[in-house]
Design a protein around this nucleic acid. Sequence first.
DNA 1: GTGCGGATTAGCT
DNA 2: GCTAATCCGCACG
Length: 199
Amino acid sequence: MVISRLNKNYFIRDTHLVCQDLIGKFLIHEDETRLKVGRIVEVEAYQGFNDRASHAARKQTPRNLIMFGPGGYYYIYLIYGMHYCLNIVTEKEGFPSAVLIRAVEPIYDSSTNLTDLGLKEKRILGSGPGRLCRWLEVDKIFNTKSVENPSLFMANDYKDQAHQPKIEKSKRVGVQYAGESAHLDWRYLDATSDYISHP
DNA sequence: GTGCGGATTAGCT
DNA sequence: GCTAATCCGCACG
């Protein structure tokens, strides 16, 4: 299978379709100093003006401005003063939406031999939105950057590592403050994966 | 300028 | 299960 990068147009469509399609895809940080590859196993949808869990639910601010533009750009913010969360903006300009990457299975790491690690240790690397950003060395430098930038991107395959995911939906994590929006089943995960953030 | 609280995590009970 | 850690965006005025 040929490795091909997901382009901006991939994200300019319904957020829930993007969520389902992203499960099993690869998230790759590659430059002169590192190569890290994770398989996406859990994401969440944040969609439109009526989603009270979304940063874009109230109004446009300097921080959430990128969410109001067209899909295909990263939205990365600092949470609780110490963890970054990685999102990809989705849909057409004017309908603020994004997909939060919540967990990846570590596939390759140029600074660590992953085969030396047990399941528990690999889970600590990639299970959870803050943990995966720490492992992949993703921070606000990539905020507002296009998914078509050369070093942080997603791809449909990585060295024949892909396999068929079993997609399940459930409630989003950590949004109990969001009233009506809190109970929506807008979290998508691969039920065959051992790397889900809240098993 | 001040104050509040979060799309989380780690460590302890 | 509970909570501290630790910063900044944003709402107030």
